[in-house]
Design a protein around this nucleic acid. Structure first.
Lengths: 222, 222
DNA sequence: GGTTGCAATGCAACTGGTTGCATAGTATCC
DNA sequence: GGATACTATGCAACCAGTTGCATTGCAACC
């Protein structure tokens, strides 16, 4: 499984409590790997048991206690091992595709509201990515071709771009910040490309669905 | 869950046995929704129990017996209900992203072989999609911008494009073939766009990784 | 001073998905 | 005629992921 390793990476970038990680997974890393707090707590417990991470309880004076985890030597080794190990490309799983094909046996135009919603959600993600990019990776922006890009420029949440990495607390420090940044930028750019492609496709799909709506709008329910 | 509905759609497109579905899920539908034969058999059993599908055993004379399932009235209703119901956009889950971020704490160049493999896999998918498109949707091809697009033009497997749909056996037949085809084409186009975007991003990533390789190649293992 | 709300952690039960194994017939290869 | 491979189905055990609920502590609201 890769949640373990996603958490290891996250903890290397910044030692954190379970709660913090869960919030981080709602933004930054969570854009390409999601997990609930439940799952995170369980995996953290497991990893602590196997010695990959160690937790230290910080008694909060003005806040509840929190258990902050950081990666141990064995944890780093495990990560390194995992990195070197080949893995199958992950398949895509998009429910909308199933719905599209299913719509052939129903009224396709009924899907329009659903597409509308998804378009909004993806447009929102895209604009958040762009905001992060211009905040944390200014100077090397992704090219942005002419795109509709509706509203939604809400302030991006606590994403850990530039300011995240623990300064040099980590014992060995070959970990140059530039390197880390460049890699994080790549990940972000993948998200941007993905959302762009998705939105273009969405526009195309919606036109088609609309055209169905106008011509033959038979069958409301079988 | 959506596997149930993916199977319903698949069975509407063509009544099939579990085995057949499993093979279909290795190609066509499986490009955007994967499942093992185990899972498929289990879900089929469950759906038969709830009356969404009904199976008929065909004693094979020259081959082993097979149980062919087709969608019932209640099954169609369930599909229709599901189609009308809003769903959250599915999140992306790509292990490579985790690895990229993790690579900052290891030697990033070690990821190159992995990227090479993934590039090959994605390039392969893309060319299979294109093959299907020109076979089944000739005349309305996707625009193909200048792309490296390595070799691998292997014959596409038994994907159900044009020839799939059961002619008019289905009781009601408002289901025009053109409509079904257009929707299937959309799904395919989404796959094409996705793979294109992925490959472009992959090239960019590999250049960066290579540049790391040349400059500072410190740290082989921590 | 009770209510609402958020930070922080966790248990328990369930569902979805994976892995490993078992079986049985048919076809083909050498 | 025995080995190998593919069609076709399924059980059992396990692991990953989700959902629902419970608790404690602090802060702020009115």
């Amino acid at each position: 499984m890769a949640l373990d390793h996603a958490l290891l990476v996250s903890l290397l970038e910044k030692p954190s409590s379970g709660y913090e990680l869960a919030r981080r997974f709602d933004s930054s890393i969570g854009y390409f790997w999601h997990a609930t707090h439940q799952q995170i707590y369980r995996v953290l417990a497991r990893m602590e048991a196997s010695g990959w991470i160690s937790g230290e309880v910080q008694a909060g004076e003005t806040a509840p206690d929190r258990k902050v985890f950081s990666v141990t030597g064995p944890g780093r080794e495990e990560l390194s091992r995992w990195l070197g190990q080949p893995a199958e490309p992950d398949g895509v799983r998009d429910t909308l595709m199933v719905k599209l094909r299913g719509a052939a046996f129903d009224d396709p135009a009924r899907l329009l509201p659903e597409f509308e919603r998804h378009r909004a959600a993806h447009a929102d993600r895209l604009s958040r990515y762009r905001a992060i990019e211009s905040r944390d990776f200014a100077g090397a922006q992704s090219a942005s071709p002419a795109m509709p890009s509706s509203g939604a420029q809400g302030a991006s949440p606590g994403v850990d771009g530039r300011r995240s990495a623990s300064p040099a607390t980590q014992s060995d420090s070959t970990v140059t910040l530039e390197r880390q940044q460049a890699l994080q930028h790549l990940v972000l750019k993948s998200g941007i490309r993905y959302e762009q492609a998705w939105l273009e496709w969405c526009e195309e799909s919606m036109s088609l669905l609309r055209s169905f709506n106008q011509s033959q709008s038979t069958r409301t329910t079988p």
